[in-house]
């Protein structure tokens, strides 16, 4: 609310992809946030005009182009997409302030209804083939690549009973696969260039990029 306090006409933009699946920024959440903001501003003695729109994909220029006709009538944009969507809107509409409405946290999977947990850090040099399909980079609190620390207790991480010990999971899985000896292979120090250590990352598919 602090972000948009100075503005009267807002365009609230959702995205139909990941944030919809995660119930964070799809059409439904756009509607909910819009009415919540209007009533909050109303009770603070201010009326605010909020236009709602949800794009098929907010990280793709061709969909973001759809917003062109709506831009003249608004003072600022609030995006409910992930950080990629927010930045794509900001890149296309350089003269409009754009604010994020969600805090993008991680790439994860749904553990059960309403619960999502981190699975991948996008480090660009995948270890899953040798760690039983469980990622120690994303799922070990110390990012240990060669086994559990001394704090693993009853399958749980020392930082919380709510967090599984990734190395317990890896070990259980290696046993199920009959690959216990694989644990003895030392995973060497990682080259973090593919994980962002080499600067912002880009993928170019020559066949598609032309």
């Amino acid at each position: 609310m602090d972000y948009i306090q100075p503005f009267n006409r807002i365009l609230l933009v959702g995205c139909n992809e990941c944030v919809t699946v995660c119930s964070a920024g799809g059409r439904k959440e756009v509607g909910l946030l819009s009415s919540a903001l209007q009533s909050a501003f109303l009770s603070a003695g201010k009326s605010i005009d909020i236009k709602e729109h949800t794009l098929e994909r907010q990280c793709d220029p061709e969909y973001v182009e759809e917003l062109v006709g709506m831009m003249d009538g608004v003072d600022a944009v609030v995006s409910m997409a992930c950080g990629c969507g927010v930045q794509e809107v900001a890149r296309r509409y350089k003269n409009k302030p754009v604010f994020p409405a969600v805090n993008t946290k991680f790439m994860g999977a749904s553990e059960r209804q309403g619960v999502w947990a981190e699975r991948c850090q996008g480090c660009g040099n995948c270890l899953l083939g040798i760690t039983g399909g469980i990622c120690p980079i994303a799922r070990c609190s110390k990012q240990l690549m060669n086994g559990p620390c001394g704090g693993s207790t009853n399958g749980k991480c020392e930082i919380s009973k709510e967090v599984d010990c990734a190395w317990q999971l890896i070990w259980d899985r290696l046993k199920m696969l009959g690959q216990e000896e694989r644990y003895l292979d030392i995973i060497p120090a990682k080259d973090w260039r593919t994980a962002g250590g080499g600067g912002p990352r880009k993928i170019v598919r020559e066949d598609l990029a032309g």
Binding site: G147, P148, S152, C165
Partner: peptide, 22 residues
């Protein structure tokens, strides 16, 4: 360091073996 008491216990000797190999 080595912790002979942490879980999974059956892995604890192998973890030392890895440190020796390193």
């Amino acid at each position: 360091a080595a912790n002979p008491f942490a879980d999974p216990f059956e892995l604890r000797v192998m973890r030392l073996a890895k440190k020796v190999a390193a």
